[in-house]
Design a protein around this nucleic acid. Structure first.
Lengths: 210, 210
DNA sequence: CCCGCTCTGGACTTGCGGGTCCATTTTATG
DNA sequence: CATAAAATGGACCCGCAAGTCCAGAGCGGG
């Protein structure tokens, strides 16, 4: 999918490459993408400039993209115990708690948020990546909602996809606010509010006009 | 609040200062804060380097802060016809439409979003600023909700503040997603979902545990 | 009309950070 | 063990952009 020019890597090479991506990810989580320099990464990972360019010929941009991809995976992985099995209210609650707890812990350091906001707007490749992540996420939630509808726990008239979209946006918004002000309340409020709608099956999540 | 070292400005000086802030704001909306250089601003506003530092001795950071302040005002101003008078469902709908329309128009270029995400995390001053904006915004919405409760249009048991927080987060999340993927659907879904909750008065917007 | 202020222009300095290069060491393979 | 390819170290280059400086223009009040 992404190369052909790449020299094939030895085990050692793969390890180093991994180290670089991981280290870069940590650095970025702390300092932001813009505030992170190749030299910071080099120092943290105990590598040299040439290694970075050896494994990422495209330079910083390519590296950031790799990091973004890794972080996108993590976002879904971290919720995975729950995300794949949203079939009961308890499961939904557990998922909600997991999300809140996770961001509560890491506070300001939202890995994906950083990439999404600082890098996502600029390059089309990164944009595609975030687009895919959001779509996967939304899809998992939608599946969960449909499940609940099938088992009669959620009103059938509810637009599952749209509600899933609202949930994703709620999390994203809550996290953005958390990142910029440190308040976790908005994330909780947004999540709980949307979940409440799910429970009460507030009639139509359907747009009026447009 | 912000100076004392400042030499008092003549009318001409104030005009120039304004020009710089406006120009910088436009530039940042297009290119992002990180991607905007003082020289870009200088060129666009037809000023010279020394002028920028004359009016903003603190350099780029001080200028960005001024821009952020200006944009924060704009955000509220733009919604003001509606935000101050959320006393009927029609008004809420009008507000919702105004928000969606506005971001639909400007697409990727969310002035405040750019500042919030690129600058808000770094400097404490900017963080305070965004915090204040969010709090004002939330407060206006809360007032609106209380109004609706008083007139019996919204369930009294609803936590007005919490729901207002959810609304702010919904907008923020929708806009963030809009900025990083170009999709407006999430903003609409998040807004409509939360507003639907308001209408149906989905019982308790209250946290279960924690 | 003159003194001092603000205002302006733009050349210059400086540091930082991305990217290049090449010499050297290590690893894979026959 | 020989050789090629990959892995590594680190010095170096270069451009960009923030910030400095000073010389001069314009204006305002006494």
């Amino acid at each position: 999918m992404h190369d052909g020019t790449a020299p094939r890597l030895t085990p050692k090479g793969m390890a180093t490459r991994r180290r670089i991506v991981e280290g870069a990810a940590e650095e970025i989580r702390e300092r932001g993408a813009a505030g992170t320099t190749l030299d910071d990464i080099r120092a943290r990972t105990g590598t040299s400039k040439s290694q970075i360019f050896h494994y990422f010929p495209g330079g910083k941009e390519e590296l950031l993209l790799a990091v973004a991809g890794r972080e996108a995976e993590r976002v879904l992985e971290d919720q995975e115990p729950h995300l794949g099995d949203l079939t009961t209210w308890a499961a939904w609650q557990a998922w909600r708690d997991a999300v809140v707890r996770r961001y509560e812990q890491q506070g300001v350091n939202c890995p994906l948020g950083v990439l999404i906001t600082e890098l996502g707007r600029t390059t089309p490749a990164a944009q595609a990546l975030t687009g895919q992540l959001i779509s996967q996420w939304q899809s998992a939630l939608r599946t969960g909602i449909r499940h609940m509808q099938d088992s009669g726990e959620v009103d059938r008239r509810l637009d599952a996809d749209r509600t899933a979209a609202a949930l994703v946006a709620a999390v994203q918004g809550g996290v953005t606010i958390l990142m910029s002000t440190g308040a976790i309340g908005h994330l909780e409020a947004a999540l709980d509010t949307t979940l409440t709608l799910l429970r009460t099956g507030g009639v139509p999540a359907v747009r009026p006009g447009t």
